[in-house]
């Protein structure tokens, strides 16, 4: 965790310097995954929107039969996974920027994470059921 490699960085606080806090070594992770999911979402979202507007009917029976095709279900899974992960990463930054009271902030960050996990779990279960049971 702590290194003294950049203790002369002018933007470092005195407290940070005293504690020897430098790079946490994983700061780029969030940034990279926000971009990776953004690039993946370009084709996936275009495909989703095009499908939603061109399907002749989204009535329950027809929509379920359509989504039950393995390739459709798989594509839908990757779309929702990339979307929810991208949204989770994005909302995290927004909350960190605007919510200054620590206890509210931590609560909201945890809530966003839990919601994303619940959503992708529900989507996965639903798609597995559609493919297997029709």
């Amino acid at each position: 965790m702590s290194t003294s490699a950049n203790k002369d960085t002018p933007l470092q606080t005195p407290l940070g310097r005293v504690r020897g806090l430098g790079s946490a070594k994983s700061g780029a992770h969030h940034w990279i995954y926000q971009r990776l999911t953004a690039v993946l979402l370009i084709p996936l979202m275009l495909c989703l929107v095009a499908t939603l507007v061109t399907l002749p009917s989204l009535e329950h029976g027809e929509a379920a039969a359509y989504a039950a095709q393995p390739l459709v279900a798989l594509t839908l899974f990757f779309t929702m996974a990339a979307m929810l992960y991208h949204a989770k990463l994005g909302l995290t930054v927004v909350i960190e920027d605007y919510v200054h009271c620590a206890c509210v902030r931590i609560g909201m960050l945890v809530a966003v994470k839990i919601l994303a996990v619940i959503a992708i779990s529900a989507v996965s279960l639903a798609l597995i059921k559609l493919v297997i049971a029709g």
């Binding site: 989504a67 839908l76 529900a122």
Partner: peptide
């Protein structure tokens, strides 16, 4: 909302 719709589509 989309996640809810997919969940409801199956269950």
């Amino acid at each position: 909302v989309l996640s809810l719709l997919i969940y409801a589509l199956a269950f």
